[in-house]
């Protein structure tokens, strides 16, 4: 009896030990492998370790995760760059708590956030990473609202403009359009895209009450792609990757409709009124204390932000602007 019980316990422990041992075995191989890579691929730069924690905007996430991966493969295999995407505002809360080193944002940092950071002794600076065109999307079978004027966008999304209960019909916008209710969609308050839309596009008026605000862009894409009367907004990148499921509405800023594209969302492009820079806020405390944070930041502005902007649905910043920011980062110490 006693023997039986002990042997089962021993067996249980052996399983646990084996699990741990297995991991350590793998881990050992892993670090050996990395060591080898470092020696062959990097001649001059010193090999760094540690982590770079990044959270923030879901709009910037595709670009930043692409950069992070490339950094770990090509530059510093010993560094772990961890990218999350809770949303600009939610990510900023973690940044304020000192939990992250970089905080991506699809809007400018707020004064209140700067104050909170200061109160916690965190020095920070805001950098532009790339340009994103806020894209208005509809269902692919929506063959009427293929273009809207800037004014129409502003009017339709603002509460009380067409109906007290915010049940807006397409025919309210233009008479010839169907007499069917428009369903509005957008990202929720955690997102910088939401704030950019409210602050800049509809100029701080209130959104229609009937709008369906979501945390995840994937939910937005699937909702709008299944709703013939749906209309919503988000960053260009999320449209580019779902062109078969969504229509991008061309916007008329006064000189005829302009379709958002990598060319038109450029700073001087025709879509510029709906174009905004996306940012990353870098904690100067981290950049000073952790060489890996500074190295990653340098990598972003030296090479990666320009290189990977296009494939992730952003227009790159002008060379001079990237360079100028690179100088600013190099000057941190």
């Amino acid at each position: 009896m006693k023997k039986f019980g002990l042997s089962v316990i021993a067996a249980g422990l052996a399983v646990v030990a084996a699990a741990c041992g297995g991991e350590e075995g793998n881990a050992g191989q892993e670090s050996n492998g990395n060591g080898g890579d470092e020696n062959t691929s990097e001649e001059q730069t010193e090999d760094l370790s540690g982590t770079v924690a990044i959270d923030g905007s879901g709009t910037v996430y595709p670009l930043m995760s692409r950069i992070a991966e490339e950094f770990m493969i090509e530059e510093q295999p010993g560094v772990s760059v961890e990218v999350s995407r809770a949303g600009t505002t939610a990510g900023m809360q973690r940044f304020v708590n000192g939990e992250t080193d970089l905080s991506n944002a699809s809007r400018e940092i707020r004064d209140s956030e700067i104050e909170e950071l200061e109160a916690n002794g965190i020095e920070t600076r805001e950098f532009k990473v790339a340009l994103d065109g806020l894209t208005i999307v509809t269902h692919p079978e929506n063959d009427w609202a293929t273009d809207l004027t800037q004014e129409e966008v502003q009017n339709m999304f603002v509460t009380g403009n067409y109906a007290d209960d915010d049940v807006v019909m397409w025919s309210d916008i233009r008479d010839e359009w169907p007499e069917e209710e428009i369903n509005f969609y957008g990202p929720n308050e955690n997102h910088g895209t939401y704030e950019f839309f409210v602050d800049e596009i509809i100029e701080e008026q209130d959104l229609v009450d009937t709008i369906n605000l979501q945390q995840e862009y994937s939910t937005l894409v699937s909702l709008i792609s299944e709703d013939e009367n749906g209309i919503g907004f988000f960053g260009f990148g999320y449209y580019v990757n779902n062109q078969d499921q969504l229509n991008a509405v061309s916007i008329d800023f006064g000189d005829g409709p302009v379709e958002p594209s990598l060319d038109t969302i450029d700073e001087e492009g025709d879509y510029a009124p709906f174009t905004r820079p996306v940012f990353t806020n870098i904690s100067l405390n981290s950049a000073k204390e952790k060489p890996e944070v500074k190295a990653f930041a340098e990598y972003v502005f030296e090479y990666a932000a320009g290189e990977f902007a296009g494939e992730t649905g952003f227009a790159p910043l002008p060379e001079e602007e990237l360079e100028q920011q690179l100088e600013e980062i190099r000057a941190i110490d």
Partner: peptide
Amino acid sequence: GIPALLIP
């Protein structure tokens, strides 16, 4: 808060 991208 497990990151969306964590390679190591």
